[in-house]
Write a protein that binds this DNA or RNA. Structure first.
Lengths: 297, 297
DNA sequence: GGTCGCTGTGACGTGGCTGTAACAAAGCAA
DNA sequence: TTGCTTTGTTACAGCCACGTCACAGCGACC
C-alpha cells in the first residue's frame, strides 16, 4: 500500500478539474496514468474516492477529506522545495573576499565555506590600503578589515573587536610581562610595517599621543616577514591582537597607552555589490562568534 | 530532482536519532539506504543538511527548517492514511442507507448495527422516487425499496417478499373479513398516496386490471399521515404489507386481485459503490430473515 | 591488537511511475 | 443516423527510485 505524492496529486487534481483527462493536462502526464493512479489507490484501500455526476467526477465525502489532507501535504512539500531551491541558488557561484588580517576573517571564511561548499571562494590578502582599493574597484566582493573608513558607499557589519598589540620574542625580557608601555617600547629596536598599514597608523598615533614617534630599526611590507623577524629576535613588532592564529615563538603584549584605541574588525562591501552569496556572507558575519578554536572543528 | 516521502523521512529521522544507522533502525531499512537518500538529496540541491559534531550528525540550520516542513508533510500524510484505513475497515466507518418503507429495512438496519457497532449509520427515508434518486446521486450508499427498476447500474439482493394490502379502521365492516376485493374497495372512500409512491403505482395497476381506477377521496404525501387518516375512520388506504411494524387500530386486508402481484423488498446500490461496509450490508441482507420480532431483540 | 559501531561504495533486484497503443463508451454537431 | 471528438480502460514496455547485500575503512574503547 502506497500513499505516494504522485497518487495524492492525481486525486487532488481530479477533484479540482472534474476529470482524469483534466488532471492529466494539469499534471503534464497522460490520462491513462491518472486513471490508473486513482484506481489503484482505491483498490489498495477498498474505498471510493469519486462519483460520476452529470458526466463529471465529483469527490465523495471520503475523497474530499483525502483531498484536504493531500492539500496540506502539498503545501508543506512546496515549502520544503522552496527552502531547498533558495539555498540551491547559493549552491554554486563564487565570491572574492579581501582580508587584511588572517584572523578572524579566515575563520569566517572557513565557516562560510563549510556552510556553502558549492561556492568557490577566492581570498585576496594584503594591506589595509590594498584591500580597500580592491573593494572599491570590485576586485573583491567583500572584505574584512579593521577601521573601515566612514564612507557611505559601503555597507558594513561588525565582526569582532580588536586592538594593536606589541609582540616580543619569547626570550626577550619584555615577554615576562603582561603588558608594555610606550616608553619601554621606545628603548627597543622596533620593527614597523610599511605605509598603508592600519596597524602602523594605530602605532604611530599611539606614540604621538605620548611623546615623539620613534624611528624604526626595520620596516617590512609583509605581516609574515615582520612575524619572522620578531621570532628571530631582531626586535619588537606590532600586530592586530587576533590578526593571526599563529602564536609560536612570541608573546603578545597589550600596550598601556592604547587604552580606548580598540577598534572593530568589520565586514564591508560596496552598497551596489549585491547578490545572494554576498548577502549570505554578511548574514553569517552578523551571527558569527567563531574563535580560532572554531577553526579547529 | 525528487523530494519524495522516503527522502524526507530519512532526513527527519537522521536529525532525530543523530546517525544514519539510527534512522535506518527506526525506519526498518538498511543503513546504506539512508546514507544514500540523504546524500543524493544534498547532491541534487547542492546543499548540506547535516554537520558532524562529536561523532554525531546534527542538522544544519537549513536541515532543521527542512525537517520542520517534512514533519508537517508527515502529519498530513498520517491523517490521510488513517482516513483511508478507517474506511477500509469494518471496525470504524459510516454508511448511509435509504429506506422507502420502514419495514423490513429498519429491521435489517438494526441487525446490521448490532453486528457492526463501530459503523455509524445514517438513515434516509422518503418516497420511492426520492430514495432512488439518492442512490443514483450517491446521497445514499445503499437502499431498501420494493420494485427496484431493472437497471444495470444497480446491484441488488432480495430481502423479503411483499405486496400491497388495504388497511381499514378496526370499526369498519371490512375489518371483519380476511381479504377484500377491488369492487368492495371501489365502494369505499379511498385514501391514496401522492405521485411517486410505489405503493400507489401498485394500487393503480391493480384497479386498472379489473376495471376503472377509482378517484380517491383523499390523497396524502406521507405514509404516517395516511395511517392516521385510516385509524381516524376517514377511509380505506394502502400500504406494503410489512411496510410498518405498527398495527394498532387497523386491519390489514390482502386484495384478491393482487394475485401474483407480489413483489420484493430489495437491497440495492450502484455497482460502483463498493467497500467493505457496503459489501457487509449486502451480505447481511442476503442472509436476513428478520421479522418484526427481530426488532424486539 | 581485537571488538564494536558507524559510514561509504558498488552491484544487483523489485516495484512505482511513466508513456504508448488499441479499443470502448459517451457526448455533440451536422 | 452518422461521424467526429473527448474521455476512460486495459495491456504492455521501459526507466529509475528504493531497497538489500557484501564489503572495506575509520574511530573509540578495552
Amino acid at each position: 500500500m502506497s500513499l505516494s505524492n504522485v497518487r495524492l496529486d492525481a486525486v487532488r487534481f481530479v477533484a479540482e478539474t472534474g476529470s482524469y483527462a483534466g488532471a492529466a493536462r494539469v499534471l503534464g502526464v497522460t490520462q491513462p496514468n491518472i486513471s490508473q493512479q486513482v484506481r489503484s489507490l482505491e483498490a489498495d484501500y477498498g474505498v471510493r474516492l469519486f462519483a460520476r455526476l452529470e458526466g463529471r467526477l465529483v469527490p465523495t465525502a471520503l475523497g474530499q477529506k483525502l483531498c484536504d489532507a493531500a492539500e496540506r501535504m502539498a503545501e508543506a512539500r512546496g515549502d520544503a522545495e522552496r527552502l531547498l531551491q533558495s539555498r540551491s541558488s547559493l549552491a554554486r557561484g563564487e565570491i572574492t573576499i579581501g582580508l587584511g588580517n588572517a584572523m578572524p576573517g579566515m575563520a569566517l571564511v572557513a565557516a562560510f565555506h563549510k556552510a556553502y561548499p558549492g561556492v568557490s571562494i577566492r581570498v585576496e590578502t594584503g594591506s589595509h590600503e590594498k584591500i580597500t582599493r580592491a573593494v572599491l574597484s570590485h576586485g573583491a566582493d567583500v572584505a574584512v578589515l579593521p577601521e573601515v573608513p566612514q564612507d557611505r558607499r559601503f555597507r558594513r557589519t561588525h565582526l569582532a573587536r580588536t586592538e594593536v598589540v606589541a609582540i616580543a620574542p619569547l626570550a626577550h625580557p619584555l615577554a615576562r610581562h603582561d603588558s608594555v608601555t610606550a616608553d619601554q617600547l621606545r628603548r627597543e629596536p622596533l620593527i614597523y610595517r610599511a605605509s598603508g598599514s592600519s596597524t602602523q597608523r594605530a602605532v604611530d598615533r599611539m606614540f604621538a599621543r605620548s611623546g615623539p614617534v620613534p624611528e624604526p630599526f626595520l620596516t617590512l611590507d609583509a605581516r609574515d616577514g615582520l612575524y619572522e623577524a620578531v621570532v628571530s629576535g631582531l626586535g619588537v613588532g606590532f600586530l592586530w591582537r587576533d590578526g593571526t592564529s599563529r602564536g609560536d615563538g612570541i608573546k603578545r603584549l597589550p600596550i598601556a597607552e592604547m587604552g580606548r584605541a580598540e577598534t572593530h574588525e568589520t565586514v564591508f562591501a560596496l552598497r551596489e555589490t549585491t547578490g545572494k552569496i554576498v548577502d549570505a556572507f554578511f548574514d553569517m558575519a552578523a551571527h558569527f562568534e567563531g574563535a580560532p578554536s572554531a577553526l579547529a572543528g
